[in-house]
């Protein structure tokens, strides 16, 4: 190993453990001194490089990270809260909608009732006085005032397991069936329904509902209007 390469290798790494270097150094005290000198320089440079570290640096580093974590968790909490609120909101909305869709369609039920009963009530041909009707209506807190057409039939009957008044009457020249049903929360008292032969609409009167069933093509709006004018329900 020539002198130049020896120096070059040691300049690159004074702690070099290459065999050739060690052998060359063993034979030559000058080379040993050179290595020693280089190692001393390294030690001095190492000492010189040990600048003072700010005393509070470690605490600052930990503080900064803790603050960062705190902010993150606050943000996460907000997101969680927003998520929970949205879930509750959606649940509330869907429950309301579900409940609404589960309301009993009074109009549909009335048509089914009329159809099931067949001609029994529709073909009745009595002439019932307003006083007689009012006596029956009283149990619903209702009263029929003024003249409407002839009343062919008026009797209590079962409307979806609820005692109701079943009437058949002449209304504006049409024969219609009218049910008086006490109001219940599960009734959809603004429902309307229609099939091939009948159409039906419910009218809400606070304490009770009227459900009118007429033949298809009958003027239901007018029938409803006449009923609203003549029926009174005390609060």
């Amino acid at each position: 190993m020539d002198d130049l390469e020896f120096r070059r290798t040691l300049y690159a790494d004074p702690n070099c453990t290459d065999e050739n270097i060690i052998k060359a150094a063993a034979d030559d005290p000058k080379k040993r001194a050179f290595i020693k000198e280089l190692k001393e320089l390294d030690a001095k440079m190492c000492d010189a490089s040990q600048v003072n570290v700010p005393k509070d640096l470690a605490s600052k580093l930990i503080l900064r990270q803790t603050m960062h974590c705190h902010e993150l968790s606050k943000k996460r909490n907000r997101i969680n809260l927003a998520l929970a609120a949205s879930v509750a909101f959606v649940m509330g909305i869907s429950f309301t909608l579900w409940q609404q869709s589960n309301l009993i369609n009074m109009a549909e039920h009335a048509i089914a009732h009329v159809r099931a009963e067949g001609s029994y009530a529709l073909d009745a041909n009595e002439n019932i006085s307003i006083e007689q009707v009012n006596a029956k209506l009283a149990s619903f807190g209702g009263e029929l005032s003024g003249e409407i057409g002839q009343i062919y039939y008026a009797n209590f009957c079962d409307f979806d397991n609820v005692r109701s008044l079943h009437m058949v009457m002449q209304l504006n020249g049409q024969k219609v069936t009218v049910f008086v049903v006490p109001n219940k929360a599960e009734y959809d008292n603004s429902s309307r329904s229609k099939d091939k032969t009948y159409q039906s609409q419910a009218v809400d009167f606070n304490r009770a509902s009227l459900v009118v069933v007429g033949e298809d093509g009958a003027d239901m709006t007018q029938a409803k209007q006449t009923l609203s004018q003549n029926f009174k329900f005390s609060a």
Partner: peptide, 19 residues
Amino acid sequence: RYEALVLALHSDIYRYAIW
């Protein structure tokens, strides 16, 4: 782990940064 890392190495890393 983080605090151990900071305590063990912040001086070395700071000196490296300084240089």
